[in-house]
Structures are given as C-alpha cells and as structure tokens.
C-alpha cells in the first residue's frame, strides 16, 4: 500500500506543470527513499529526473517499491482540480490499476478524491554517471527563463560559454545575432539573486533552445537554477524543490561531427 500526504500540495501541481510539456507518459517510482521519476522526451534528447524525498512528506507510507505508469497530461488535469492551498494525498493499493488523489482544503471543510487509471509503460532506467563538471553556474531562475525566452525569438540554438569573464548565452538566426553575458555577482541583497560561477576550466556547448525553454516551466519551483556544464556531456539544469528534492533536466548537446 502507498499513501503519501503532502501538506504543500501546490508543490505537486508545480512539478506536473514543469514536466508535462517535455514528457507524455512516465512511471512514478515509490520506494522508502521517496517519490521519483526518470523519463525522456519522445526524441530522447532530454531527460528529466525528479526526486521528492520521503522526509518531505507529512506522512509517507510505501510498503514495497511500486512503479505507477501515468499520462502526465491526465495527472495534470486531476491536480488542477486541487486548490493551491490544498493538502494532497496520493494513494494506491498494491496491484491496483488506479491511483487516487485526495484533496483537502486547509480548514478541512472540503474533501475530494479523484481516481485515475494507471497505464503500463515500458521504460528503461538510465544510469546517470556522477560527473565532475567543468563549470557550474547558479543564477536566479527567472533570469535564466528570461534569457531563454529572449534568445528563442532570435535563434533555435544557444551556445553557453563559461569563461572567467562570466557566462555567455549566444544565438544566431535569420534576423541577426544575440549575446547575453552574465557576470558573477555576489553583492546582492538576497542570496537567491546572486549569480555564482564555479569554473574549473572554460567550457562552451551548443543546445536546442526549445528544450531549454521547456525546462524553464519549472521556474515556479525554485528562485534559483543551477546549470552544470562539461564538454561532451549533457547539461544539467537543476531546480531544487525546497526541503524535498529536485527536478533535474539533462539535455544532450549539439556536436560538430
């Protein structure tokens, strides 16, 4: 049996909004560690890894490991019926082909349950190797979203280059070119407004902007985003989920052959 109670139900709503554009169907895996998901987009260019640790739930019961296949648009339809301040409980019985989402209003005067059919999804888990990244950039998530949006009105791809000068986002298209440089900036009022660049060595990689823009759907989950880059490795765009875990998006680079 599975029963997960999340007082801050809006987190789950935001998680679904963050990934449903990228991934259509996915298996949600429940174990003693937490509630997790690993899935790729249909063209296998991007991968999303979600972890919500069991300690982050008010109540977490998972008697045995369970993998639940869901259509993310359908999950999103269900969760959009929950109020932003609602407590959300996810329930499933062993061997059942349904999952139940229960929504409780904060003062307990409204309780709703939505039962959704599960589906069988063939998916293989990929081993994500631990890597030392050549450069790690932490910046306000809203700033990163703005940059991706702005550049995608000019071109289709972004070159992200990290040097000791800062991090540069460049694109080129039919109408012209654009370069946005963000320098390290630690002298800000709030730590979440800082741009911090940890560089072992300079790195420059090319990525499809369409996917980057899709990742920024996770912006409401975190004030900051961390971008980890290494030559010949997928970039990692990570949004931490307060006290609970993370969403990490991996995007394979475009490489000159």
């Amino acid at each position: 049996m599975l029963e997960l109670r999340l007082v801050q139900g809006s987190l789950l709503k935001k998680v679904l909004e963050a990934i449903r554009e990228l991934v259509t169907d996915a298996n949600f895996d429940c174990s003693a560690t937490g509630f997790s998901l690993q899935a790729m987009d249909s063209s296998h260019v991007a991968l999303v890894a979600l972890l919500l640790r069991s300690e982050g739930f008010e109540h977490y019961r998972c008697d045995r490991n369970l993998s639940m296949g869901m259509n993310l648009n359908n999950v999103s339809k269900m969760l959009r019926c929950a109020g932003n301040n609602d407590i959300i409980t996810v329930k499933a019985d062993d061997g059942s082909d349904t999952v139940t989402f229960m929504f409780e209003s904060p003062n307990q005067d409204k309780i709703a349950d939505f039962e959704m059919k599960l589906m069988d999804i063939d998916s293989e888990h990929l081993g994500i190797p631990d890597a030392e990244y050549q450069a790690i950039v932490r910046m306000p998530s809203s700033e990163f979203a703005r940059i991706c949006k702005d550049l995608s009105s000019i071109g289709d791809t972004v070159i992200i280059s990290v040097t000791k000068e800062g991090v540069k986002f460049s694109t080129a298209g039919d109408i012209g070119t654009a370069n946005i440089v963000c320098r390290q900036n630690k002298t800000v009022d709030k730590p979440e407004e800082a741009t911090i660049i940890e560089m072992q060595e300079p790195v420059s990689l090319t990525f499809a902007l369409r996917y980057m823009n899709s990742f920024t759907k996770a912006t409401p989950l975190s004030e900051t985003v961390t971008i980890s880059l290494s030559s010949d490795l997928p970039v990692v765009v990570e949004y931490k989920i307060a006290e609970m875990g993370y969403i990490r998006f991996y995007l394979a680079p475009k490489i000159e052959e």
């Binding site: 991007a46 081993g127 994500i128 394979a252 475009k254 490489i255 052959e257």
Partner: peptide, 14 residues
C-alpha cells in the same frame, strides 16, 4: 552544422 545528440549516447541503460 552541429548535430543533435541523444541522451543514450552519454547515459547507459541500467
């Protein structure tokens, strides 16, 4: 023109 790679080139199946 740089060619789009896929994730499986970098991450092996478990």
């Amino acid at each position: 023109k740089p060619k789009q790679q896929t994730i499986s080139r970098f991450f092996p199946p478990k």
